[in-house]
Design a protein around this nucleic acid. Structure first.
Lengths: 158, 158
DNA sequence: TTTTGCTGGTTGCGCAAGCAAGCTTTCGGT
DNA sequence: ACCGAAAGCTTGCTTGCGCAACCAGCAAAA
């Protein structure tokens, strides 16, 4: 939703599409997740994060950070995935407060089954509409922006 | 959340930051809305849409489209804004089924009060971290992508 | 003019998600 | 060894949101 007046035209031409994408893209992908795979996009994100972790194992809190979800939400999502057998929840040996989530074989199978369809959706939604040149030029800019957003939390001044 | 394996490196370097931004950016902005302005970012979006419309007036359904929200959601949001006096809801004269939402003076005042703070947040979150060059090169790519996303709804094939 | 169907919007309900408070385990200081 | 504080979740409650079912007004056919 725009401000525009006080952004110069080039900023506005960057900003407008950006928030629009941020709003529309996730929904566009999400819509097909449950029907196609029996997984929420959140579920999928958790499974992906685990699949990329050493030993397919992550702390609950690490999972919250990498998925950008709250601790409370992750707690419930992991419980749910555990009940469905896609993940196992283990009390951490060296710290009795902590828990680890581990990807089960069933979870990996499920993830691999979901992957191709998801990839096809991503291509259809995004890459089919952009040239290689587009991707090469905009990629680094997006990377810088993403990095900046990750770093913001500390003491947000005015 | 990533796929990566089957995306080539440049695609992955575009995709990864993009979904991350789509997830993190809206939350980063949203967090300050309510405390700062007494408005949800959704409320704000509705007020902006009205402020840009001729006569500060839009059909409920048009509002749903421009804010990318469901009809049911918009219906409730507008009711709420109306109860708070920021918007007026009028039965449409030439079509008895339809309703129009009109921005009230109080609504405009509220919007103008919220604007500078929001703009500052946007600058702090986004533009402070990007060069003019970044904005100029990535803007058109984002515009193309946004346009493609708007156009997708009709019969999503494989 | 009545009936059938469509369009615009609203309401009932369920789900995802966050916040705040709570519980347990650990750690640092004494 | 003990006590207070902090870390790492978990649980209760509230909110934002969409879907599906619904109702009212219009429109086209009968």
């Amino acid at each position: 939703m725009g401000d525009l007046a006080a952004l110069d035209p080039e900023e506005a031409a960057f900003w407008r599409p950006l928030i629009r994408i941020a709003i529309v893209l996730p929904r566009a992908l999400e819509d097909h997740f449950l029907p196609d795979t029996g997984l929420t996009s959140t579920d999928y994100g958790v499974l992906v994060a685990l699949s990329e972790a050493p030993d397919h194992l992550l702390r609950i809190s690490a999972l919250a950070a990498t998925t950008a979800l709250s601790l409370s939400r992750i707690s419930r999502v992991v419980d749910d995935l555990a009940r469905r057998g896609l993940v196992e929840k283990r009390r951490c040996a060296e710290d009795g407060r902590a828990s680890n989530a581990v990807l089960t074989d069933a979870g990996l199978v499920r993830l691999e089954a979901a992957y191709p369809g998801h990839l096809a959706r991503v291509r259809a939604a995004v890459f089919d509409h952009l040239s290689a040149e587009d991707i090469r030029t905009a990629g680094p800019v997006l990377a810088r922006l993403a990095a900046a957003l990750e770093a913001t939390p500390p003491t947000d001044d005015c």
